[in-house]
């Protein structure tokens, strides 16, 4: 295992996933990449007023995620003396994690078990479930 990819959101299980992956990285010497995917689809419907502000909103969303999601996660990895690389991207979470993992040369994917609301999970299935169906590299789901 040369690289680890942790997909995170605001949930508590995400924090546990980061801790788990950081420990694994410090023990195995693998590199660690932390990513937060902002759910976004090119096929969603938007209003014209939203559209002309979209560029502004995109930057704000990324800045907020960096501050509120990525920074706390990096703080967790510091406890294990691991220095991760990070990114915040827009798109479909499971699909993007798979493509980033491939981009990192076949990274092992680590995610928390819960994240989406119960209703959303019931309707669309959760990101971990989708991930297990489509991943081309090993996936660890942390409870």
């Amino acid at each position: 295992m040369s690289s680890l990819l942790v997909g995170i959101d605001r949930s508590a299980s995400s924090r546990r996933a980061v801790a788990f992956a950081a420990q694994l990285a410090s023990e195995s010497g693998a590199t660690l990449h932390i990513v937060h995917v902002i759910p976004w689809s090119p096929y969603s419907f938007t209003s014209p007023a939203e559209n002309d502000q979209r560029g502004v909103s995109k930057h704000q969303e990324i800045a907020t995620a960096e501050e509120q999601i990525i920074l706390p996660a990096v703080a967790v990895t510091a406890e294990f003396s691991v220095t991760p690389t990070t990114s915040v991207v827009h798109g479909s979470p499971a699909e993007l994690l798979v493509s980033i993992a491939a981009h990192l040369g076949g990274a092992h994917i680590v995610v928390g078990r819960t994240g989406d609301s119960r209703l959303k999970q019931a309707l669309f299935g959760s990101t971990p479930v989708r991930l297990i169906q489509i991943a081309k590299t090993p996936v660890t789901v942390v409870p």
Binding site: W40, P42, S47, P48, N51, R54, K58, H90, G91
Partner: peptide, 15 residues
């Protein structure tokens, strides 16, 4: 891929 999060062709057309 870097266009993700911005207004897509589909969205501009639909609007």
């Amino acid at each position: 891929p870097s266009d993700a999060g911005e207004v897509s062709h589909f969205q501009a057309l639909a609007t």
